[in-house]
């Protein structure tokens, strides 16, 4: 094919695909600034005639959006911090510490990845009910405090830590905990950032488990609140789009800021173990 034609074709296709990928998001942003009812007219308007923040104001003042935003931030941050701590320790142990049955235990964990999380959800609900954690922040947080994926990711990365470094520290009389904190953790920083953003995004976007365990509105995270609003306010597209913006924007910005780490983690996690 003529190379000029090929260039136009390839870039044209990429541009078209990008338009399809982004238009729904741009449309959401535009409609969120329209006055109530404006989007429900023909032809469907693409831009607000008089941009207004009214929908956002209504969401925060009447629909409790501020509370749900705080809930989401709280729950996602807690899951990120707690699971990061336990996954880092376990991943490091699997990579660098010697103990009987290490490989077999790790293989068993990887094998358990085939079990869909939803299989555990029914008894998990009963367990948390017994522990009094249904409809609480802890109910959402506790099952996410460690992940097999996270342990796997840290182990793959920590295998690159040179053994000589650890041995030298041991000979100098450093305790294992000190070695972990002062030598290993600084070396694991890139994978920490990767895992943190992965975990935060997954926790923020999680739907099914919070929907199950949060039975009252008080602790709703944004996706749950949005799904419930969407059932109540099916006709108010402008209001719902403002709600979608509030839900999507934080994770989208976080991704844009830390894109490199996120994509690296995606590739690391997808390499066959």
């Amino acid at each position: 094919m003529n190379p000029r034609l090929a260039r136009i074709l390839i870039n044209g296709l990429l541009l078209g695909a990008t338009a399809v990928a982004l238009l729904p998001l741009l449309w959401m942003l535009s409609v969120s600034f329209m006055s109530p009812g404006e989007a429900s007219s023909l032809p469907p308007p693409l831009l607000p005639t008089h941009p207004t923040l009214g929908n956002y104001r209504a969401l925060f003042a009447q629909a409790g959006m501020g509370r749900y935003l705080v809930n989401s931030l709280l729950v996602s941050s807690a899951i990120t911090v707690l699971s990061l701590a336990s996954n880092l320790m376990a991943g490091y142990a699997f990579a660098k510490l010697r103990f009987a049955g290490r490989e077999r235990l790790f293989q068993a964990l990887i094998g358990a990845l085939v079990i869909p999380a939803q299989v555990a959800m029914l008894p998990l609900f009963l367990l948390l009910k017994y522990l009094g954690l249904v409809d609480s922040y802890a109910g959402v947080i506790v099952p996410g405090m460690a992940t097999i994926f996270g342990i796997y990711l840290v182990r793959q990365y920590a295998r690159g830590v040179p053994d000589e470094l650890l041995e030298a520290a041991r000979i100098d009389g450093a305790g294992e905990w000190r070695i972990f904190r002062q030598i290993v953790l600084p070396l694991l920083k890139p994978i920490m950032v990767t895992l943190a953003i992965f975990t935060f995004l997954a926790a923020w976007n999680d739907f099914m488990w919070p929907l199950i365990v949060l039975t009252g509105q008080e602790h709703y995270t944004l996706p749950i609140a949005l799904a419930s609003l969407a059932r109540e306010h099916a006709q108010d597209s402008e209001l719902m789009m403002a709600g979608s913006v509030i839900t999507v924007l934080p994770v989208l910005l976080l991704f844009l800021a830390l894109q490199r780490y996120y994509l690296e983690g995606l590739l690391l996690g997808s390499v066959k173990g």
Partner: peptide, 9 residues
């Protein structure tokens, strides 16, 4: 990276 619920809406 968007939230399923939000973009489904």
């Amino acid at each position: 990276v968007t939230t399923v619920v939000a973009v489904a809406v």
